[in-house]
Simulated assay, not measured.
Amino acid sequence: MKLHKESKGTIIVASVVFAIVAFVSTHYLKMWSLAILIPLIMIYGLVFWFFRVPNREILDHKENVIAPVDGKVVMIKEVQEDEFMNDKAIQVSIFMSPLNVHICRFPVSGKVVYKKYHPGKYLVAWHEKSSTDNERTTLAVESLTNHKVVFRQIAGYVARRIVFNCKEGDEAKAGHEFGFIKFGSRMDVFLPIDTEIVCKIGDKTKGGIDVIARMKE
C-alpha cells in the first residue's frame, strides 16, 4: 500500500507512542496487556489506512466537474459566493470522515486564478457555518469552458492541518491532486448557477473519478 507524503510525521509520532505503550503494557501491566494492545494495534493500523493513496486512472475532462474528494454529498444549494465570484452559485459540499481518503483534487481543468488561506474556528465540518467560519483555503480555477469555479478546503473539529500545493497561474487538471487535509473535514465546490448537477445529497463520491456536475460551454 502506497502512503501519502503527508503521513511521515504522523506515522513517526504514532510509532513512537505505540512502541512506548506496548513496552509499558507488556512489562508492567501484563494481565492487562492484551486489553491495551488490541485496540492500540487497531488505531495504529487506522493511521496507515488514513494516509493510503489509491491507484486510480484519472481521465481528461472539459465540461465535467469531478468529485474533488472521497466522501458523502451533504449539501446542494443556491448561495451567494462573495469571496471571488461575487454572484449566485450552486454549492456542492462533500464531507470526509476519518476513514475516507483525504487527498484533495482539482474539480475542473483550467488555470488557477485565485488562492487564499483563512485562519478560523474548528466547528464540526458538517456545520453549515464551517464554510465561512472555520480555518479554510479558497481556490478558484478558470475552467476550459471559461467558467469561474471556486472550491474550498475546510478544516473540521478534528482536522487541524490543511495542505495545498498550488499557486496562482498553475495549470489545474481535473482529478489530479493539489492538496491534503488531515483527519476529517469538508470540501465545498461553488459552480455557476446554470451548471447541471448530476449528484444528489447522500451520494458517496470517489475523488478524481465520479462526475458531480457538467458545465455548459
Rank of each mutant, 00 (worst) to 15 (best):
Y157F: 14
N86I: 02
D87C: 07
V69K: 01
A159P: 05
S33H: 13
L34H: 05
K88M: 07
M85Y: 09
K8L: 15
Y117T: 05
K204M: 11
K206V: 15
K216H: 15
E6P: 06
K62E: 13
P39C: 01
E83F: 09
V158G: 00
V74G: 05
V113N: 04
K2W: 10
C166H: 03
I90N: 02
D210G: 10
S109W: 11
F51K: 00
F183I: 09
V150A: 02
L46C: 11
D210Q: 10
I90R: 07
V69L: 02
A35P: 00
F183V: 07
N134C: 03
F106Q: 02
I38T: 11
S15P: 02
F106N: 02
V149R: 11
V198S: 11
F84K: 08
C104V: 10
P68V: 01
A213I: 08
T10Q: 11
L139I: 15
G184W: 00
H27P: 02
M1H: 10
E57K: 13
L37N: 03
K2H: 10
F18I: 00
V13A: 12
K8M: 12
I181A: 08
D60G: 08
G71H: 05
G175W: 01
K148F: 09
D170E: 05
D60C: 06
A125E: 11
V92M: 05
G184E: 00
M31E: 15
D203E: 06
A213Q: 07
F23Q: 07
H27M: 14
N100H: 07
L191R: 04
T26N: 14
I212G: 07
V189M: 09
A89H: 04
V79Q: 04
V53G: 05
E81H: 05
H127M: 13
I58T: 07
A159I: 02
A174C: 08
L46H: 10
N134A: 04
K167Q: 15
V141M: 09
T137S: 13
P192I: 09
N55F: 11
I193P: 04
Y44I: 06
V79T: 12
K111P: 07
F178Q: 09
L191S: 01
D210P: 08
F164N: 14
S7H: 01
L123Q: 05
T137L: 14
A22T: 15
K148A: 07
Y114D: 04
L99K: 11
T132E: 13
Y28V: 02
A213P: 04
A35D: 00
G175L: 04
K115A: 14
K129I: 04
R105F: 01
K2V: 03
V101N: 06
P107F: 04
T205G: 09
I36N: 05
P107D: 03
K8W: 13
S143H: 11
I162A: 04
K200E: 14
K77R: 14
